[in-house]
Design a binder for these strands. Structure first.
Length: 123
DNA sequence: GGATTGACCTAAT
DNA sequence: AATTAGGCCAATC
């Protein structure tokens, strides 16, 4: 696992309940503004960890990663439980629930983030 | 070990 | 305004 992934996980874990974030926002916050895709990839493996991956959506507020959850509406259901209205994989009030890490977190706090070593992961 | 592919985003046509 | 191309890091083939 790279440090980049750990930073991504750290940020995602800091997303408050009832809030969502976009891949790009996280990527930009971490310094690599163009690695939004990598953030998504990081999330792919995050389902084994204590990472609320359901709070990460794409820039349009679309639940692009819902397929990777069990069932078809699990992600939507999780968000709805936190008070986020979702309709047809689309968050209704995105800007209302949007949480920008750069507004609440300090990048320097993530330079010494403790790497999280997943157990269900191959060596 | 090279090539392809992702839960994406931005910039240039 | 809509489509295409490029880039990022890691994993899979």
């Amino acid at each position: 696992m790279s440090d980049f992934f750990h930073r991504v996980y750290a940020v995602v874990r800091n997303i408050p309940e009832g809030k969502v974030c976009s891949y790009g926002a996280i990527a930009r916050f971490l310094g690599s503004g163009k690695s939004a895709r990598v953030v998504g990839y990081a999330m792919n493996a995050s389902h084994l960890l204590d990472v609320p991956a359901h709070r990460v959506v794409n820039r349009n507020g679309l639940l692009t990663g819902k397929h990777h959850f069990d069932g078809n509406t699990l992600m939507q259901d999780l968000l709805a439980e936190e008070g986020i209205e979702v309709s047809d994989n689309q968050i209704i009030d995105l800007q209302k629930h949007f949480w920008d890490p750069s507004d609440f977190l300090n990048p320097s706090d993530f330079e010494f983030v403790t790497p999280y070593i997943p157990q269900d992961r191959k060596t």
